[in-house]
Computed example of a mutant assay.
Amino acid sequence: MTDETHVGLSRGNFSRWITVGAGHVAMVAGTLLALELVWSAGPSRAFLGAVALVVVLEVLLVWILFDEGTPISAKPAQSPRDATEQSVTLATWVTIARAGAVVVLAGFVATGLPTESGIGPWAPAALFALAMVFDAVDGAVARRTNSETAFGSRLDVEVDALAILVGSVVAIAAGTLPLVFLAVAVARYLFVAGRRWRTWRGRSVSTLPANRLRRPLGGFAMLAVLLALTPVPSPAVSYWLGLLVAVPVLANFCWDWLAVSGRFEKW
């Protein structure tokens, strides 16, 4: 990152961080109120505690993105001053709303999936689906309004990864996904950490090659988590489906790691 694009936590960005954090908390509160209407048991203290923990983690994530110098805008036509002073866009607010759904979903880690009658048992799947469906919406809004930003793009990727992680942990805790699926949930984090470790050690890191399987396998992983969060199919079906999906997804991550670590060049 060059000095021209590094914006860090300037006074303007600190103000934006406060705004984003407050907006995020407000969206989480609104989602909790909506959940209260469809879930007869209602959120417990443990549920709210888990939600509060993930809220803090997500607000810290935004802080880190600013502090790392992820620019609000990286459009070549703009000066550094313009890039620093541009407000958080509508598309980014959509991403933050997605993050709010993920936060509330995290509460079910503490309480397990709802089992009472009515539409309450569908709430976890609905929250996960909301986070996934709006993944396409924020990108479309950014392109339609010509407001694509480096910060919004990075935040979008992080929310995607967190949604898979939280959804997987909820399902694993409920017994509707196998424990091995946790490897799928953390594979992206391990992959990024591995690349940074190699860079820090001064080792070569190759460009990630094109891979036609990466996107469809990611879609299958999302589908496996979604089905595991719904009352149907049976836990046994979603469990074995998750196991079936985990194998090729993890194999593909291993293939990508061999590529970026230069293993192919040695063969």
Rank of each mutant, 00 (worst) to 15 (best):
L226A: 14
S44Q: 13
R144L: 15
L127S: 12
F253H: 10
P43A: 07
L33D: 04
S261Y: 01
D82M: 14
E148C: 14
G242L: 04
R195E: 05
D67R: 13
I96G: 01
K75V: 11
D160M: 05
G118I: 09
V25E: 02
T115V: 12
K75L: 12
A126Y: 02
P233N: 14
V94G: 07
R16V: 01
T70K: 04
G42V: 09
L250N: 09
A77N: 12
A77F: 13
E85A: 10
L179H: 06
S206C: 07
A140S: 10
S147R: 13
L244D: 00
S15G: 07
W93N: 03
P43R: 12
G8P: 01
S117P: 07
I119K: 04
V247D: 11
P76W: 15
A126G: 03
P209V: 03
P76E: 15
G42H: 08
L223D: 00
T19H: 02
G175A: 08
A41I: 10
V245E: 11
L35Y: 11
V137M: 05
L90F: 13
V169K: 04
I64Y: 05
V59F: 02
G218V: 06
G194P: 06
L155E: 04
S87A: 15
V237M: 12
I72Y: 07
P71L: 08
T111R: 08
R144I: 15
A123M: 10
A22I: 14
P233C: 14
S234Q: 12
T95I: 02
M222E: 12
L37R: 15
A150K: 00
R154Q: 14
L53D: 06
S79R: 05
F253M: 08
V55M: 05
G100T: 00
V180D: 03
R201D: 00
R81D: 11
L258W: 13
D256A: 11
A163D: 05
V184W: 01
L217P: 04
E158Q: 14
I119H: 07
M1R: 15
A99R: 02
G21D: 01
A150M: 12
T95L: 02
G8S: 01
A161P: 04
R212S: 05
T2P: 00
I172C: 03
H6N: 11
T176P: 06
A99K: 03
A26L: 15
D3H: 11
R215A: 12
V55S: 05
N13I: 02
G218E: 04
G69M: 09
A99N: 05
G42P: 11
L61G: 02
A174E: 08
V157Q: 14
V184P: 05
L35R: 00
L32N: 07
V249Y: 09
A106Q: 08
